[in-house]
């Protein structure tokens, strides 16, 4: 069982990352909104009951979508890769 500190570290990292994206795309809020939509779609799929024939968005698809959204912002993309579970 992992120690609770890891949970709060992950939470803190997630907050910093969301802040960084918000700041980076202050002039282009539609990019930030699309990023949130991708995350929500992914999360919705994760909540589907197991054993459903259609699994929805895979980790790989999430990464591909975010990569095209963050095109040219390699630091944001590589940081995103650190959150994504291995596909």
């Amino acid at each position: 069982q992992p120690p609770p500190e890891s949970d709060s570290l992950e939470f803190h990292n997630a907050i910093s990352y969301v802040n960084k994206i918000k700041t980076r795309f202050l002039d282009r809020p539609e990019i930030y909104r699309s990023f949130l939509e991708i995350l929500h779609t992914y999360q919705k799929d994760q909540l589907n009951p197991k054993g459903r024939p259609f699994r929805g968005m895979s980790e790989e698809e999430v990464f591909t979508e975010v990569a095209s959204l963050f095109h040219g912002q390699e630091d944001l993309l590589s940081e995103f890769g650190q959150f994504l579970p291995e596909a």
């Binding site: 949970d7 992950e10 997630a14 969301v18 949130l36 995350l39 999360q43 959150f83």
Partner: peptide
């Protein structure tokens, strides 16, 4: 200071649960 909307907060939630899942599977 963090000025987060509910949308932001749920993004933080999804990202941190992704990271937890990643840690659990590694």
């Amino acid at each position: 200071s963090y000025d987060f909307t509910p949308m932001d907060s749920s993004a933080v939630y999804v990202l941190s649960s992704m990271a937890r899942q990643r840690r659990a599977s590694s």
